[in-house]
């Protein structure tokens, strides 16, 4: 059950499109900078399969120029502790 956050940089002039694209994907939350061309993406998927599918959809987005990981957390890695 991983949670990741990313810095997403839109393709030139595609900030609005990127927001719409990201918002249309499940398990995604989007925080938009109101003065710079940068978007923060937080993903929260229930299992690894969904996570893999989401990664694929993200890679296929035309409006996205680059995606860099800022924070990662995975429950599976800490199983047995809780």
């Amino acid at each position: 059950m991983p949670i990741f956050s990313y810095i997403a940089i839109p393709a030139s002039g595609a900030k609005k499109a990127l927001c719409m694209d990201l918002n249309s994907l499940a398990h995604c939350e989007v925080i938009v900078s109101d003065n710079k061309d940068v978007v923060v993406l937080v993903t929260d998927t229930p299992d690894n399969d969904t996570e893999d599918k989401l990664q694929k959809s993200l890679n296929n987005l035309q409006s996205l120029q680059s995606l860099s990981l800022a924070f990662g957390y995975d429950d599976n890695e800490k199983q047995g502790r809780d």
């Binding site: 949670i3 990741f4 956050s5 990313y6 810095i7 939350e29 925080i31 900078s33 710079k36 940068v38 923060v40 993406l41 937080v42 929260d44 800022a70 924070f71 957390y73």
Partner: peptide, 12 residues
């Protein structure tokens, strides 16, 4: 998620 968002915002 809050921590994830804060950390990404800080990086941005």
């Amino acid at each position: 998620k809050y921590a994830a968002a804060s950390s990404a915002i800080a990086t941005a």
